[in-house]
Nucleic acid binder design. Structure first.
Lengths: 242, 242
DNA sequence: CGAAGAGTTGAAGGAGATCAATGGCGGTGG
DNA sequence: CCACCGCCATTGATCTCCTTCAACTCTTCG
């Protein structure tokens, strides 16, 4: 898939783009990079001069903790700009890595900032993109703080699947989430044993299955109920139904 | 304190403002509102037409959970724009309330958006403000997910005290944090009993005291160490020392 | 003056972390 | 080629920390 197209599609999910905005995006040049699983491409403390666009696969943001442990903060897929904040914040306070194999495109900050001057409405679309990120962070606070472990796991699966469907990255009721159980633990603040047991509880509910990095949604309504998932916080123009 | 001044001072902590930017801010008109403790002024689902500027006191953002329970997400003080996101996201996914008595100013979105057209650099300063919010949310994910309870409490106190000092809202080693223990619990994902016991543990460390909504920092280095607090994520132009 | 809520403390019970052991799979190197 | 290593996934047992519950005081507010 063409990187430009994927960004345009993504921004259109929440913002109106005029044809001039789209033309600006099409003028972006970039270099792409193929990433093997678990490969860092931006590290804490870096001062990036390029923005990253996810072209394919999944990437994650994480805080590095003492002892090499991680706290994953969010996951991003095709069309996302997972470090748009880097445009205005010099130094990274977290790292970015691939989750499973992925392809990313690097767009020079200068090009994007130049486009903002010509098309302020494009700047607002990307501003909105960063605001949606913040809404996802807020939900993650609540998810990890106020929900039971099986519930928070279901919520994460709901969020990823919902966003994948918005971008038509699902294959029917299936969706690639190349996370390992240890990584799920470092996302949801659970020990590995608890991750496994929560997963089995969700499996036994009959609403979903997850193995080998693939989520299968068998009963969306039920999974949504189990995860206490309400997609309003994703602020999409056209909420998905069913 | 004049609301305009307070906003200018706050933006200057992380962004350069030219005199034209400051002139635009001084042209903002607003109505102020006096709030008694625990008073909601924006609710989940609202579609605000005004941005809020905290003039004095403290305000908090929270998610409303089933059963009326809350998850507090962040706290804001004089000079903060706790719902700048409302400029571009129609519907609130969380609520805002006063923590203790507070005064807030409402500035019409139209005025702010108009100022952005004349002074794009002002827009970028406020964009950066929303990005700093996001960094605080990320840190809250890690705080509530990966740190022990006493540590996360110390971290919260460090963050609030550090930000208060940046804005000179502290009184020496004291700083007003008008949170009750139940509210601390709904912030840090702890039961009230645990809040109390963690607090006593911190007191007994000799690095701080907290009672009746006032934090007293007795040994900043030690408190910082106990909270595993590293202020880099606040991205200030001039980090405070000591 | 009674009710409600904050703060405090002790005891209980439970959810989840930790530890340990196993099987399976993929990669590497002798 | 296959033996070995490392990591993922799984499961059982133990143990600990934290939630829950209860009781009491104190303050505030109606």
């Amino acid at each position: 898939m063409d990187p430009h197209e994927t960004l345009i599609r993504n921004l259109k999910e929440h913002s109106r783009l005029r044809s001039d905005d789209i033309a600006e995006i099409c003028n972006f040049s970039f270099v792409t990079k193929e990433l093997s699983p678990d490969q860092d491409f931006i590290r804490q403390g870096d001062q990036p001069k390029h923005a990253v666009l996810v072209v394919s696969g999944m990437v994650g943001r994480y805080h590095l903790l003492k002892g090499g442990r991680r706290q994953y903060l969010s996951f991003h897929m095709s069309g996302d700009l997972p470090d748009a904040q880097g445009l205005f914040i010099e130094r990274m306070d977290h790292a970015l890595c691939s989750i499973g194999p992925a392809r990313v495109a690097f767009i020079p900050h200068k090009q994007i900032l130049g486009a903002f001057e010509r098309r302020p409405s494009l700047g607002i679309a990307i501003w909105r993109e960063t605001l949606l990120d913040a809404a996802i962070f807020r939900e993650a606070i609540t998810n990890n703080s106020a929900r039971s472990r099986p519930t928070r796991m279901a919520h994460l699966f709901c969020e990823v699947f919902y966003r994948a469907r918005l971008s038509q990255l699902n294959k029917g009721n299936r969706c690639s989430i190349p996370l390992t159980l240890p990584q799920l633990g470092e996302t949801l603040a659970m020990a590995i044993a608890s991750v496994n047991r929560a997963l089995q509880q969700l499996r036994s509910s009959g609403s979903m299955d997850f193995r080998e990095g693939e989520l299968i949604v068998l009963n969306w309504r039920e999974l949504q109920r189990l995860g206490e998932f309400n997609p309003d916080y994703l602020h999409m123009k056209k909420p998905l139904t069913g």
